[in-house]
C-alpha cells in the first residue's frame, strides 16, 4: 500500500499541522511560525474551494442519472442543472460582477432562498394551533415559556401585557442561557476530545480512511 494511503501518514500530518496551528494561537511565537500557520490556513481555504467543486460535480452526476431514468420530479433536475451550470459558465466566463451573473442572482437565488425561509411562518402558525398541546408538565412549561417570549418579543405584547416582559427576560437570560451554555461547553469539550482522538488515529472516518459498513441487507 502506498504510504500516502496509510493511516500513520495521516496521523503524522494531523499532529504536525495541528501543532503549528494551535501553538501560535495560544502563545507568542516567532514571526516565522506565524507565517507557517498562515500558510496552512490559506492552504485549507484553497482545499475547501476545491471541495466545493467535488460537491458540484457529484450533484451534477446525481441529477443526470435522475433525468436519464425519468425519476419522479426529473424536470426539476433539469432546472437545477441548467441554472447551476449557467451560474458556473457565466461566472467563470464573464466574471462574478457581470450584469448577467448578477441578474441570475437577483432573479433566482435571492427570491428563491428568501421564499423558502419565509414559508416557515406558515408552518409556525399551523404548529401553534396543532403542536403546542399542554398534555404534560414538560409541554406546559414549553408552551407557557413560548407564550411569555412571544408576548415580550412582539411590540404589541409589551403594551398589552407588560408583565410578560420581566418573565420572558428571566427565561431568556437565566433558563435558556443556562441550557445554551451547557451546549456551548459540551461543544467545546467535544471539539477538544475530537481533536485528541484525531491525533491518536482514533477518528479516521473523518479523513475517509474507514470503509463504509455494509448494511445487513447488502450482506
Amino acid at each position: 500500500m502506498s504510504i500516502l494511503r496509510r493511516k500513520e501518514f495521516f496521523v503524522v500530518m494531523i499532529v504536525f499541522i495541528s501543532i503549528f496551528i494551535y501553538i501560535p494561537y495560544f502563545f507568542e511565537v516567532p514571526q516565522a511560525l506565524t507565517n507557517l500557520e498562515n500558510w496552512f490556513m490559506d492552504t485549507i481555504v484553497i482545499i475547501a474551494a476545491f471541495a466545493v467543486w467535488v460537491g458540484f460535480i457529484t450533484a451534477t452526476r446525481r441529477e443526470v442519472v435522475r433525468i436519464q431514468r425519468r425519476r419522479k420530479g426529473w424536470f426539476y433536475a433539469v432546472v437545477i442543472l441548467v441554472l447551476s451550470w449557467a451560474m458556473v459558465v457565466i461566472g467563470l466566463g464573464v466574471s462574478k460582477t457581470n450584469v448577467i451573473f448578477e441578474f441570475l442572482q437577483y432573479a433566482f437565488v435571492l427570491p428563491g432562498d428568501s421564499t423558502i425561509y419565509a414559508i416557515l411562518v406558515f408552518y409556525l402558525t399551523s404548529a401553534g394551533a396543532r403542536a403546542f398541546r399542554v398534555n404534560s408538565l414538560e409541554s406546559a412549561l414549553l408552551t407557557f415559556g413560548a407564550l411569555f417570549v412571544l408576548l415580550k418579543q412582539a411590540p404589541l405584547g409589551e403594551v398589552l401585557a407588560p408583565w410578560a416582559g420581566p418573565m420572558a427576560i428571566y427565561l431568556q437570560d437565566t433558563i435558556a442561557m443556562a441550557a445554551t451554555r451547557v451546549f456551548s461547553v459540551s461543544l467545546a469539550i467535544g471539539s477538544v476530545v475530537l481533536a485528541i482522538r484525531l491525533m491518536l488515529g482514533q477518528e479516521m472516518a473523518l479523513v475517509g480512511l474507514v470503509r463504509r459498513v455494509a448494511s445487513r441487507e447488502e450482506e
Binding site: T125, A129, L151, Q153, A154, L156, G157
Partner: peptide
C-alpha cells in the same frame, strides 16, 4: 414590518390558546 410582526405573533398566541382549549374539550 413591526406591526405585521406584532399582529402575526398575537395570531400565533391566539392559535396556541384556542388549540389547547379545543384539545381540552376533545380529550
Amino acid at each position: 414590518q413591526m406591526d405585521a410582526f406584532s399582529v402575526v405573533q398575537f395570531f400565533l398566541i391566539l392559535l396556541m390558546v384556542l388549540g389547547n382549549v379545543g384539545y381540552y374539550g376533545y380529550t
